[in-house]
């Protein structure tokens, strides 16, 4: 459904990405693992249209979206959960979720999406009138994921969803990703926590200095000695 070819670009004149090629089939969970500064976040930002300089091809369901403005992307069915969560701190949880449906703005669709999010994260229902900035890190992550689901995406971009969270909360996020994928949404997961990423994804790409150096099934990557040494710490 998503096909990225020969993607280069960055924030200034200096390229962070060098000819990246990635593809995602419908219903798949794919992960990109790699060290800090390898360019993982830049790939997601390029897809969503917020990377300042992009060269190459990004095709969603046969439609080139490479240079579409960022605010037109959610309506095409791509939800983005950015690194660092980026909840709107001085808005209620519910208003944050409403913002996720901004591109649809139709009552009927929104209430069913909202129901789905509250079913996935019952804790958000309890806290829906609280300011998002007052929540714990894990709860904010739920808000960020819930908000991205509000546009009924076909593809969910997840950037470091486990970063800075307590291990027990990481498990919850892990469960949520599996549930989201089981409901038919494709997931592109970017993680430093490679063991988590490879346990939820079916395929993975290893990114080094803006280049894909390895791609395989998650199973094969988990047993690959290079990956084990460099990213799994075994």
């Amino acid at each position: 459904m998503l096909k990225i070819e020969n993607l280069s670009g960055g924030y200034s004149e200096i390229d962070i990405l060098h000819g990246v090629a990635i593809s995602i089939e419908p219903g798949e969970t794919v992960t990109i693992i790699g060290a800090n500064t390898a360019g993982k976040t830049s790939i997601l930002r390029a897809i969503s249209g917020v990377l300042p300089r992009v060269v190459g091809m990004i095709v969603l369901d046969g439609q080139a979206i490479t240079h579409k403005p960022a605010h037109e992307i959610p309506a095409l069915g791509i939800g983005h959960v950015p690194e660092g969560r980026h909840v709107f701190p001085r808005m209620t949880v519910e208003d944050n979720l409403f913002m996720g449906a901004y591109s649809a703005r139709r009552k009927a669709k929104i209430s069913s999406a909202l129901e789905g999010v509250y079913k996935l994260f019952p804790r958000l229902l309890e806290r829906r009138k609280q300011m998002a900035g007052s929540l714990s890190g894990g709860e904010q992550q739920m808000v960020a994921i819930g908000r991205a689901l509000m546009c009924n995406p076909k593809l969910l971009l997840l950037d470091e969803p486990s970063l800075g969270l307590a291990p027990i909360v990481v498990d919850e996020v892990h469960e949520a990703i599996l549930a989201i994928n089981a409901s038919g949404v494709s997931v592109l997961l970017v993680e430093q926590n490679a063991s988590l990423a490879l346990s939820v994804a079916s395929r993975g790409y290893v990114l080094e200095d803006g280049r894909v150096v390895l791609q395989d099934t998650a199973e094969a990557l988990r047993t690959n000695p290079e990956v084990r040494r460099a990213y799994l710490g075994i």
Binding site: G49, H71, I73, P74, H80, F88, Y102
Partner: peptide, 24 residues
């Protein structure tokens, strides 16, 4: 209103507002 929420969202985090579909 939608525009009211969009104004608050852009004021708090303009890039994130773009990511949910707001023309900042």
């Amino acid at each position: 209103s939608w525009i009211g929420r969009a104004i608050r969202a852009v004021a708090q985090d303009a890039m994130m507002a773009e990511l949910v579909g707001v023309n900042a």
